[in-house]
Simulated assay, not measured.
Amino acid sequence: MNKNFLPIAIDISNQKILIVGGDHSAWKKLKILQRFDAKVEILAKNICEEIKQSGVTYYEKTYHKKYLNGYLMLYSCTNNEALDRQIVEDCRQAGVLVNIHDKPALCQFVSPAIYRNGNISVAVSSNGEDVYESIRLRDKIKAYLQ
Rank of each mutant, 00 (worst) to 15 (best):
Q108N: 09
H64D: 10
Y75Q: 03
I120G: 10
N117Y: 09
V40S: 14
N127C: 07
V20H: 01
Y75F: 15
L106I: 00
S121L: 15
A44R: 00
E60S: 13
D11P: 04
D90F: 06
E129W: 08
V88D: 13
A143H: 09
S125C: 11
R85N: 11
S54Y: 04
L83H: 05
I100D: 05
A105Q: 13
K45S: 06
A82Y: 14
Y67H: 12
V122A: 02
K61E: 15
I135M: 10
K45W: 08
C77Y: 14
S125Y: 06
V110S: 08
D23M: 02
N2M: 08
L106E: 08
K142G: 01
R136Q: 10
P104D: 08
Q108D: 11
R136C: 05
F5T: 00
G128K: 00
I47S: 05
Q34N: 06
V122I: 15
R85K: 15
A113E: 07
K28R: 13
I32H: 12
Q86A: 11
E41W: 00
K16T: 00
I51N: 03
L68Q: 02
P112S: 12
K39A: 03
F36K: 02
I12K: 06
N4R: 10
N99R: 07
Y144W: 04
E81D: 14
E49M: 08
D37W: 09
K45E: 15
V96Q: 09
G55W: 13
S54G: 03
V56W: 11
V98G: 04
H24D: 13
I42Y: 11
R35T: 04
G70Y: 07
G95T: 03
N99P: 05
G55T: 01
D37H: 09
K28F: 08
